[in-house]
Simulated assay, not measured.
Amino acid sequence: MHENELADQLAKAGLIFLGWPDDSLPRVPGSVARYAVSCGNESDRTDVNLNYSDTRWKEGANSAWFELSVSAGLFGQDQEFLVAITLEPEMYPVPIRWAWVRLAVSWDIAGEGAAGPLGGGRHLPEFVMLSLDGEVIVRGTVWQDGIGFLAVRNPGQSPVLRQQAESVMTWHRSRPEERLAARRWLDAGAA
């Protein structure tokens, strides 16, 4: 995906594309961070779920995401954070890279914005976000009976995410850059 195309797609969700962050820094790989849905209470996880049976679930989705993101500490200075972007969806394994973004004045993450790189369609959020310091993951997902947002604080302390990073390093299909990112993140957490 070209940067201009990505910037246009993110703009529909109200995200301003600021570029690609330094990949040499130790941060949880996006392919690992998406497993935040598998983390339990031992991983300092907080959930907000909106049930389809509530006729106002669509109206509450954006505010639920924002309130969780604020309380968990997703936003850095000027409401900047990282979002995982699938670069080539037809490849396997799918290459995922963090994009550096800023929340615009007007945004729609869980509604129209979910029809682009942040989801599977309008009102179907499927995304992974990371604070700039790497200490907070916010995940949007679709469940059988509704949609949900969850936050995992201190992902380096999560046994589930650390185990997944170990799997990335040993799986024969992992790309070399992903193995390196997983190793860098695990090593930083062990120090």
Score class of each variant (00 low, 15 high):
residue 154 N to A: 15
residue 109 I to F: 04
residue 7 A to C: 01
residue 138 V to L: 04
residue 28 V to W: 10
residue 109 I to Y: 00
residue 2 H to M: 09
residue 99 A to C: 13
residue 147 I to S: 01
residue 108 D to C: 03
residue 83 V to T: 13
residue 81 F to I: 06
residue 165 A to D: 08
residue 113 G to E: 10
residue 123 H to Y: 09
residue 147 I to Y: 07
residue 60 G to K: 04
residue 50 L to D: 01
residue 32 V to E: 03
residue 181 A to Q: 15
residue 39 C to F: 02
residue 127 F to G: 02
residue 118 L to C: 05
residue 167 S to K: 14
residue 169 M to G: 01
residue 37 V to K: 11
residue 115 A to C: 12
residue 14 G to N: 02
residue 91 M to W: 08
residue 30 G to K: 02
residue 105 V to H: 03
residue 56 R to A: 15
residue 113 G to M: 07
residue 104 A to I: 09
residue 114 A to L: 15
residue 65 W to F: 03
residue 173 R to L: 07
residue 6 L to W: 01
residue 52 Y to K: 03
residue 82 L to T: 05
residue 77 Q to I: 08
residue 11 A to S: 12
residue 31 S to A: 10
residue 105 V to W: 00
residue 185 W to D: 02
residue 155 P to V: 07
residue 14 G to R: 05
residue 83 V to R: 04
residue 12 K to W: 05
residue 17 F to L: 12
residue 54 D to N: 15
residue 184 R to E: 02
residue 27 R to F: 09
residue 120 G to Y: 11
residue 134 G to Q: 00
residue 172 H to S: 08
residue 102 R to D: 00
residue 128 V to W: 04
residue 75 F to T: 14
residue 107 W to H: 15
residue 143 W to T: 09
residue 47 D to E: 11
residue 105 V to G: 11
residue 94 V to Y: 11
residue 14 G to E: 00
residue 162 R to F: 04
residue 1 M to V: 13
residue 73 G to H: 04
